[in-house]
Design a binder for these strands. Structure first.
Lengths: 339, 339
DNA sequence: TAATGCAATGTAAGCGCTTGCATCTTGGAA
DNA sequence: TTCCAAGATGCAAGCGCTTACATTGCATTA
């Protein structure tokens, strides 16, 4: 009773000598309230340290000004700066971001999505386009405004801000081929539950095939995104009877794991075998030799995704369409020219 | 009107032929409802795809089963796995995590905290113990259950799950001294708004001073946590008239930045100058030479923080006290013995 | 001067849920 | 058979806020 309870709208109203409606308006639509009232309300709010109660607000307005994002993992830097940019853009517009992670598990993703929606998220940002039917049905039945990132799905109705994983993988493959490599292997992410991983595999496949009989994709080994797993995959590849002169990796962490293991095994990179990465996170410049990799426009993608989602939320019909951001091969030292 | 609107408790009640109270009880206190009713309710819920409305629930129960975390940055892996562990533990207990980042800005932190609280967070996890008076007052006035991590404040009343940054810095310094280095420099995080950074500086100071006149801490250069800034700091240090034989860095990213720059400058690490890091994130094993650094028990800390916060939330009086987790120096190759 | 319009504010009905209390069953115990 | 306790359920009052609609008080216009 006597505890300095958190003040409510009513407390403010009483203290300011007006109705709660006026306070609410003063906060949300100041132009609908006379200047002096506005000022008085401001003072009382400050004096009382009033903060609007989110649940009440959400319940009454049916809008939470909150958006959710479900990313596969927080554990590496892969999504970090994209997410950061996404959040920054949202903040500018007065939206709040809720982040959850799925661990590359589609069922977990569904759970997280439901949680976010039930938390009142007005919209969602999701990574990739592959998900369970239950998830798709849920999203559709509830008509949840959604933007996809890190991908460029071909579904007509999906709104996305991403890049073409297949094309990007083709591009780096082209680069590898141009360096004279014909015996190629790939260390990919686990393609089963990760469309980016499988598209990158496809890109490598397509491009090597295009090159004609001279080039061969010897093997594709899948591994979870860790240094350890990348190293194991590397070892597995190097134990095969026909060894590649270049290994294309679906991710920088995998590539670094491979290079690290090569070092332990006394195999020279890129002397004996070249290695390329994907993503261009910090680790790519740190590794020795520095990684030739594909730069993913993380920040631009995060920003673009936010802009699109917000336009969807505000205008119902998005004024901004889907966008494919350009990727770029960054040449460093882990890819050698084959003599 | 005809739109398949998201179903409410009332819809479920109607369909199941009972009152909303029963549904609510069936969901939250199944033991208070007869088994057959429970089952019928379950079926209806599944059939309708009902999800409880979070705002309504929060408003009515005054508990959101949500906790917030404000971390300085998402941009590097420093907090990632600790946060992940924190979230996992929360999920087990049916809590949801909301994450926000402050960019190492105390005012931004205050804003984010307010947002989280207004979002209905029942409790908070915060990094470090240094914050503005406004923040402290807010937290105290609202009596917000809070657990601190990555630090071990000496305030009597603060609940924390962290480690002793000073002691950890002393330990790595001792290691450096034991390797025969007497001319030492430090590249630290920006200490102004980051208590972990300043405590690590203090640890290095204290330990070198302890060593007597033979050892000297030549300089401490502060830098934001990026490869670039670490490199710049390195250059600045190496330009000074008296050069150190070892540089202790307050963070792995800084250390890697230094090593990278050394490479560009043709300075040998650890031949000419040794470099140590702090945190032991992925990048530390990837860099060549692999980084001698301080392992921070991220996952254990995240889990411990969650346990403590939850006990605080459930029992009012925490059954679990603050805890100091042990850190450990990991010897790799970036620290050489001085002949 | 009376009618009119508009700006400022108040009134009160919910938003979807929880929960204290009241009501109704039902299976013993007396 | 009667009575009571305990279990199962319903009723209805909010939780803190927004907003459609009603009201009030002026300034404006003919």
């Amino acid at each position: 009773m006597n505890v300095p309870d958190t003040p409510t709208l009513e407390d403010v109203a009483k203290a300011a000598g007006v109705s709660t409606a006026t306070i609410s308006r003063s906060i949300n639509h100041p132009d609908k309230v006379s200047p002096d009232t506005n000022e008085r309300v401001q003072q009382v709010i400050n004096a009382l340290g009033y903060t609007p109660h989110f649940a009440g607000k959400t319940l009454a307005s049916k809008r939470s000004r909150t958006v959710g994002a479900v990313i596969p993992t927080m554990a590496n830097a892969m999504f970090a700066s994209g997410l950061q940019a996404f959040q920054e853009e949202l903040n500018v517009q007065g939206y709040t971001l809720l982040v959850a992670s799925s661990g590359y598990d589609h069922d977990a993703e569904y759970e997280q999505i439901r949680k976010l929606i039930m938390q009142g998220a007005d919209g969602l940002m999701l990574i990739g386009h592959q998900r369970t039917k239950a998830t798709r049905d849920f999203l559709q039945a509830r008509r949840i405004p959604t933007v996809l990132a890190w991908c460029n799905p071909d579904e007509r109705d999906a709104l996305y801000a991403g890049f073409d994983n297949v094309a990007a993988a083709q591009e780096i493959t082209r680069e590898v081929l141009a360096h004279g490599h014909t015996h190629i292997a790939m260390i990919a992410g686990v393609s089963g539950s990760n469309d980016r991983a499988s598209q990158r595999i496809e890109g490598v496949r397509v491009e090597t095939a295009k090159h004609g009989v001279s080039a061969r994709l010897l093997s594709v080994v899948e591994a979870v995104y860790s240094l350890e797993a990348g190293g194991d995959a590397f070892e597995q590849i190097m134990r095969q009877s026909t060894q590649p002169t270049a290994i294309i990796c679906g991710n920088d962490v995998l590539a670094c794991g491979a290079i690290l293991r090569a070092r332990q095994l006394g195999i020279e990179v890129p002397g004996t075998v070249s290695v390329t990465g994907f993503d261009d996170i910090d680790i790519a410049q740190v590794i020795e030799p520095a990684l030739t990799t594909v730069k993913v426009p993380q920040r631009a993608m995060g920003k673009a995704a936010a802009e699109r989602l917000l336009s969807l939320l505000d205008d119902q019909i998005p004024t901004l369409g889907s966008i494919n951001l350009p990727t770029r091969v960054i040449l460093r030292h882990s890819l050698a020219t084959l003599k």
